[in-house]
Design a protein around this nucleic acid. Sequence first.
DNA 1: TAAAAATACTCCATAGGTATTTTAT
DNA 2: ATAAAATACCTATGGAGTATTTTTA
Lengths: 301, 301
Amino acid sequence: MELRHLRYFSTVATELHFGRAAEKLHIAQPPLSKQIQDLESELGFELFNRTKRSVSLTPAGKGFLIEVERIFQQLDRAIDIGRKTSRGELGQISIGFVGSATYNILPVMLQQFRDRYPNVRIELHELTTDRQLVWLREGRIDLGLIRPPIVEKNLVSQVIFQESLVVALPISHRLASVDAIDIDLLAAEPFILFSRQLAPGLYDPIIAICQAAGFSPQVVQGCIQMQTIVSLVSANMGVSILPASIREAQRQGVVYKPIRSNEASKEHLATMAIVWRINDNSPTMNRFLESVLVDFRSTIK
Amino acid sequence: MELRHLRYFSTVATELHFGRAAEKLHIAQPPLSKQIQDLESELGFELFNRTKRSVSLTPAGKGFLIEVERIFQQLDRAIDIGRKTSRGELGQISIGFVGSATYNILPVMLQQFRDRYPNVRIELHELTTDRQLVWLREGRIDLGLIRPPIVEKNLVSQVIFQESLVVALPISHRLASVDAIDIDLLAAEPFILFSRQLAPGLYDPIIAICQAAGFSPQVVQGCIQMQTIVSLVSANMGVSILPASIREAQRQGVVYKPIRSNEASKEHLATMAIVWRINDNSPTMNRFLESVLVDFRSTIK
DNA sequence: TAAAAATACTCCATAGGTATTTTAT
DNA sequence: ATAAAATACCTATGGAGTATTTTTA
């Protein structure tokens, strides 16, 4: 049995006239009669009551017709789902992100993508940069939102956002009321920073700024979460240098101050990048990359 | 697109190997590759990621596969429904019946048919014999349960049940305590009978019995419902002659007495017949007739 | 270099066409 | 008498086979 038989049957069942049905199907009447006969013989039951003058559906034909129409509906559905999936309009994407992406980058990015592709399911995983690289390799996520640099073949990355660094001080700090901070004034302060192992992309620029100011910071604590750093600063445990977007997370007891302009602070920025498998050419990924690299970058920059 | 394409696709998607899939399909590998290519080109999107060494489904192919499997399920369902309907195991039958068939004939008949063919929907219509003939002609019912005779080409009938007639008397009647009644003793009584027009098959034998006993009954009321006749008898409005199965409908104030055996009472019985369109050869009808003429008659007789 | 898909071609089965017959109205 | 389905027979498209090439793991 082929779809041809079912198409022919459906048309004859609608027209109840072999001649007209054949015309509608752009074939001659005899081969149509033949195909219907073949179908009936394969099915093992009659679809039509025919006299030489009139055609009507048997009860079995009536029941079969209803179900055959559903086959065609299901076929349309299959094609539609395939086409939408091939265009990336339908599908699934797993995204990893570092906690500090939640302040502005992630929400904006997801909003824009969702608006364009409402039928793509998005799965989110908060993970440190190094975990994301593992998950990418294992195929557990398709795209990561990380602090560069990363060096790994099979993965591609692309910077999508850069922002300046700010100093975080407890509100009682002697410098809490100045407009901008000269970094060298912090030489004697205890620093609360990310642990280098988990976020070198954020740790290294901070160290670089300090060294450009002539000192090596005294790091008293290595943290994973930006929120933890802010808490410790508010508790007078020390000062920190953080990406400017931390201001979005309103927090009592802490003030953020820009770094007084100098060569190092201009050069060393907090950078966010996306990373994905070089051989991943799934339509959903392509649409997502498109959305990020066009919509997102134009919004944020 | 033909089912062939979908069958081939499904097999390759399962095997993820053109050679093995071709073997499973009992065709050579090159035509299989060709058919899949044709399918992809018709669909307008790729189903497989192929290198010369390995095959995997694209996301679109994955989605398409799931829906294609449903097509085959739906096809199986269509065939199954058609086959069952063609055998009369699935379907619908509309049955008309006279009120007096409800005492024993109809329930037994339906029970037997239902046991054999639980998936046939039965629609019931209580109608007088003459209305049933109209509805049969109009196709509103497929089978009637009537009081013969009927004479109408295009309709066939078959007697399925005969029973003796009994006299119905009010309990206070002077003959209420005899064992059996000589009909001629009722010559002076008012008779409550069916209206001849609606049920000649029941009216005529009764008149015949009376005339054989030497009188023409004085009919005071023409009723449609047997229940109404019984009510009127119990209210002392007169006597009646009814099919013996009326005894099933227990009723206070009325007694039923057999007619003292004579030629006429042996000869004139209440007869029930089924009637259907001569050109109706729907499978459900055939199964129903089979059930009635085999099971039912052997039960009742 | 070996396994597997694609390409090139050949063949024939069968879908579809034309001419005619049959039959019910 | 006529409309419409079935039958008979013919044609040719394209599905399937065989031989070979290409590619990559």
